[in-house]
Write a protein that binds this DNA or RNA. Structure first.
Lengths: 293, 293
DNA sequence: CAAAATACCTGACTAAAGTCAGGCGATGGA
DNA sequence: TCCATCGCCTGACTTTAGTCAGGTATTTTG
């Protein structure tokens, strides 16, 4: 890896924690411990389930409970049973709590403003654009691609979104039942596999693999959520699937695609796939590709 | 101020502390309190004076002392009298301390690497460039411009660098004694003023003002350190000096500049100065400007 | 040369952050 | 219907972080 790049990341991290992080910590407590301030902020005007709070802030359940008690004592928060499940509870801001939350919100705005204020209009635009870039690319870097079961609720949701998109983009429309020879069972090891790409735990893409014969694997169901496109998710999933195929003993990977999916075609070419003759009778396929592993 | 810009800054700050800051804090402690880890890292292979450590880490003197005692007990640090002044001391890493420091260093690299690793080469370049931009512009935003005494050591250093640069850039060379009618005394209120731009406490620019008559102020000695150019420091100093001039009752501000200082000329025009006829006998001046306040 | 200032140290604190074991009342699958 | 599990709570901690009031040499200054 490039040492200059690493040095830049380290220097960035120092600079940002010093200039942004430090302010956050000192200004945004309003005379209250940082933990409580963060909790109050995280509950937000809509309230939040205790479990969600615990995972978002990384708190021990006892610790959270005690802080909630303290915020309740200050009259800022009320904790109520709400959901169907009477074990789980939900923290809500009281009137006073909402006012406090608004104060934090205003302080955050002020803080952001204090960064923009000394800059010229050109510099502001540039800073904001660079921040958006960093944020987007850091998110991309935190996306994970992993093998998962194909029959979970989340996998089904990915596939549903995938099919919806095909129906919208194919000139001829799309009916999942028609020409869709592969069933979910095909994507279970050792005759196949399924990968999901996740950003902060939420699925943002999927891809599937099945063995056609002992030496040939087919890639199917490649999909990336619109919000995560342009971040290299597809090629990461593709490489993951290829590695899995290789581990199954496959020597060749093949796939088909529709003429309207131009990005997909250029992705496959970029990743070393060559166009070949029709190898299946998928009515929606217009192009067929393969790659030797 | 633009709400979208503020929202972007807030979102950036959240994203970065979550993705970079959080890792920093949890990974970089190696089973030791964060304070000690930071201290060890800050001492570095070359060692550091205690005063410097205290100010860089923002520590209470007692707190620092206690942490040093703890690091000494762990055999990582030795504290020695070194300088001429026997009151001040210097913390040095022992052999074991250097090994520990190297481990932190490697961890930091690894952390940075883990951000780069999932990205494509194009995305990496883009991330690194955006980070450099953000860092640079955040630094620019933290530059302060304030009125200060013109006879301090730091003011003198700014002026010395300014004169050195003039000597280098003027085709005809530069002799500070020649045609330099203004003395330091002219830059003391209420007949004049002196501003210094600072980045993290270190001077990165200066500018001076003196009243020629009760309604006219002259701006002189405008200088920005090469490292801080292109960040809008000069125009901030200029505006500050104009505001001071106005507070002194001046209705007009004027200044002169040499033909080789092209950026200065375009700055003055951009800030609303119009070129006028020669108003002084400065042998180094080729252009004269003025602006009504 | 005495007095003030400097640079660091020590002891005695407080508050915040974080951990652990156990407990209680739902809940849901065998 | 039983019982393991879940979601939360309580009490009893430990560790970190941070502050404050002196105290001791050493240096600087009037």
């Amino acid at each position: 890896m490039d040492n200059l790049q690493i040095a830049q990341i380290r220097s960035f991290s120092r600079a940002v924690t010093r200039r942004v992080g430090a302010l956050d910590e000192s200004y945004l407590r309003r005379g209250r411990p940082l933990g409580e301030a963060r909790l109050l902020f995280e509950i937000g005007p809509e309230g939040a389930g205790l479990g969600a709070l615990r995972s978002r802030l990384g708190l021990d359940s006892g610790y959270l409970s005690r802080m909630l008690r303290s915020l309740e004592a200050q009259g800022l928060v009320s904790v109520e049973k709400l959901d169907g499940d009477a074990r789980s509870r939900r923290a809500m801001l009281t009137e006073k709590g909402r006012a406090e939350h608004a104060a934090y919100d205003a302080l955050s705005d002020e803080l952001a403003n204090s960064i923009l204020e000394p800059l010229s209009a050109v510099a502001r635009d540039r800073l904001v654009a660079a921040m958006a870039d960093v944020e987007r690319l850091l998110a991309a870097a935190s996306i994970t691609v992993g093998e998962e079961a194909a029959d979970t609720e989340e996998a089904r949701q990915c596939l549903a979104q995938y099919f919806d998109e095909l129906a919208e983009r194919f000139e001829e429309g799309f009916d999942p039942g028609k020409g869709n020879t592969a069933t979910g069972d095909d994507f279970i090891p050792p005759q196949g596999s399924f990968v999901i790409a996740r950003l902060d735990g939420n699925p943002v893409g999927c891809g599937a693999l099945r063995l056609i014969d002992s030496e040939t694997a087919e890639i199917k169901r490649m999909w990336v959520a619109p919000s995560a496109r342009g971040l290299g998710v597809a090629s990461r999933m593709l490489r993951k699937l290829e590695a899995i195929a290789a581990s199954f003993g496959a020597k060749t990977v093949c796939l088909d695609t529709n003429r309207s999916l131009k990005e997909a075609q250029s992705l496959y070419r970029r990743e070393g796939y060559a166009e070949i003759a029709r190898f299946n009778d998928n009515p929606y396929a217009d192009h067929w590709f393969s790659k030797r592993l």
